[in-house]
């Protein structure tokens, strides 16, 4: 039996709808996504269920599991923190901070950082969290 070749295979697939959809996806990612520089430290924030969403313009401070600190993408020693934060505040930077600390960082290191930021005049300091994974169970401890 001879099967007639379809018209589509002779003339190629219609590209118009495909281009439309891909354009729409592209526009979506352009509008909804935020392009951010690659963070200098690898940080995996702890999970939380009742955290607030957003937080406005804040000084971004990273603290990794090893206790290293980065202010606005610049890795620095703890003793240079005051200088780096002070410079940014003086340059009309935000007077609030978002601490993105790794979930495995020691509480002592996080607390020292929070206290140092408070001493520097940053009253509104928040900890970054990520949404709870669906399969996460309660800690039996």
């Amino acid at each position: 039996m001879k099967i007639p070749a379809s018209r589509l295979s002779r003339h190629g697939e219609p590209m118009g709808p495909l281009v439309d959809v891909v354009f729409l996806l592209l526009v979506f990612f352009l509008l909804a996504g935020v392009l951010e520089p690659v963070p200098p430290l690898s940080v995996d924030p702890p999970e939380a269920e009742h955290a607030a969403v957003g937080g406005g313009d804040r000084l971004r401070i990273l603290l990794d599991a090893g206790g290293r600190i980065a202010v606005e993408g610049e890795v620095l020693d703890a003793d240079r923190l005051a200088e780096a934060v002070g410079e940014r505040i003086d340059a009309d930077g935000p007077r609030a901070a978002l601490v993105e600390a790794d979930g495995h960082a020691a509480v002592g290191a996080v607390f020292s950082l929070l206290k140092a930021l408070r001493r520097l005049g940053l009253e509104d300091v928040r900890l970054a969290t990520r949404p709870m994974a669906m399969e996460a169970d309660d800690d039996p401890e």
Partner: peptide, 19 residues
């Protein structure tokens, strides 16, 4: 854009350190 853009809204926890 799918690979480099970040879509999630950051979540934050307010922490009060007593002065």
């Amino acid at each position: 854009f799918m690979l480099v853009s970040r879509l999630d809204v950051p979540q934050t926890l307010i922490v009060e350190v007593p002065s």
